[in-house]
Write a protein that binds this DNA or RNA. Sequence first.
DNA 1: CAAAGTATACTCATTAGTGAATTTACAGGG
DNA 2: CCCTGTAAATTCACTAATGAGTATACTTTG
Lengths: 208, 208
Amino acid sequence: MPRSAEQTRKRILDGAYTLFRRHGYSRVSMDDIAAKASFTKRTLYHHFKSKDQLLADVLACQQELALQAFKTFGDRLSGSPEAIVEGMFRELAVWADRPRWAGSGFTRLVIELADLPGHPARLIARRHKARLERCLGELLERSGVRRAGELARAIWLLSEGAISLILVHGDQGYSAAAANAAMTLVRSHLDKHQKAVRAAGNGSVNWR
Amino acid sequence: MPRSAEQTRKRILDGAYTLFRRHGYSRVSMDDIAAKASFTKRTLYHHFKSKDQLLADVLACQQELALQAFKTFGDRLSGSPEAIVEGMFRELAVWADRPRWAGSGFTRLVIELADLPGHPARLIARRHKARLERCLGELLERSGVRRAGELARAIWLLSEGAISLILVHGDQGYSAAAANAAMTLVRSHLDKHQKAVRAAGNGSVNWR
DNA sequence: CAAAGTATACTCATTAGTGAATTTACAGGG
DNA sequence: CCCTGTAAATTCACTAATGAGTATACTTTG
C-alpha cells in the first residue's frame, strides 16, 4: 500500500471541501479536486463512489469539526445571554470579512441543490443546522433565558439572513444589524431585570 | 421577420427565469432553455450574447415585475406596522408552500455565483434587494414606526433567514418563527402604545 | 427582394466515470 | 537480511455525454 488510505482520503476531503465551499458544487470538477489534492482523478473514484457521494462525505466530515468548533465556542462564552449573542455575531463579522469569503459552506451547498431534496448532502447539512440550533438553544437555556428554543430559532434566522445578505451586498454591516436585532430579542426574553453584557473570546472557527 | 423579436425575447426570458429559478444557473443548459421556449439554441444566441448575459437580462426583466408586485403588495396592506409584517410573512409562508419551491430566485442565484463578484447578474440582484429593503423601510416609516430603516433591515434579515432555513429543512415553521420575532421587533420600535393588528390581502406574487 | 429571425449541423472544450496496467508496502519464506 | 508474492493504492489512457458557442443556409414577412 503506497500510502495509508486514511491519509489520502483526508487529503481529498480537505481539498474538496475548500473547493466546494469556495465555488459551489457544479462548478468544481473531479479533475479540479484531484489536482488540488495532487492525485489522479481515478484515485478519487477509488476512495469515493461518485461526486455526489464525495460531497456527502465532505460534509459529514466537516460536520464533526464544525460541531466541535461550535461547542468550543459555546464554552468560551460567559453565561449571560447577551454575551452569547454578541459573541456569535462578532464571530460572524470576523468570519465574513475574510478575503474570498463565500458564505456558509453548508447553506451554500444546500441552496445550490435546493431542487434535489433527496440528495445525500442535503440530509447531512440539514441535520447539521438542526443540531447547531439545538446547541444554541441549550446554551441560551443555561443562561437563564425564557423560551430559549424560540429565541435560539429567531437568532438563527437572523444569522442565516445575515449570511445571505452579506453575500448579496458584500456589506458586513448586516452582521451588526443582525446583532442589534438579536439583542432586542434577547432582552424581550429576559425575566424582568438581568444585565451583564460581558464580552467573549474571538477566533475564526466557522461552524455554519 | 418571422416573429416579432420582442415576443421571442420575452418567451425566452420567461422560460429561462423558470428554469434558473428552479434549478439554479450551472445546471440549466442553453439547450434546456431553448427547448423550454421551443426555439433552437441558435436563436437564443441571436437574441442574447451569452449565457451570463441572458441571466443578467432575465433578472433585470424580473426585477421590474417583482418591484411592481411588492409595491402592489405594499398598497394592499393597511397602515399598521403589525399588519405589514404579518402580511409579509404570511405571504412568504404561502409562497414557500408551493410544490417545487426552491427559494428566492435572486438570492439563490447570487449565492450560486458568490465567488464571482463581478458577474453582471449579481449587480442586478443586489440593486433589487436593496430597493426592496428601502421600499419596506418607507412602508414602515409611513406606518409611524420609529427608526424605520433599522427595523426594515432587521425584518429583511429575518425574511432572508427564513428563506434559507425553510429551504434547508423543508419546514415552513421557520416562517412563523420569523414572523413572531419580527413582531417582537416591531413592538420594540413602537412609540409607547399602538396596536391594531389588521389582516391584509394574500396572493402569491413573489418579489424576493 | 432584403433583412431580420430561425433552424440544421456542426466545433471544441469539459466532464463524470471506467478498464487495465503499474507502482508500492509489507508479510512471510528462504 | 534479502527476496518475492500479493493486494491495496495509484496512475495512464480512455469513453461517452454534455455544454457553450458558431458558420451557414433556409424561412418568413414587410
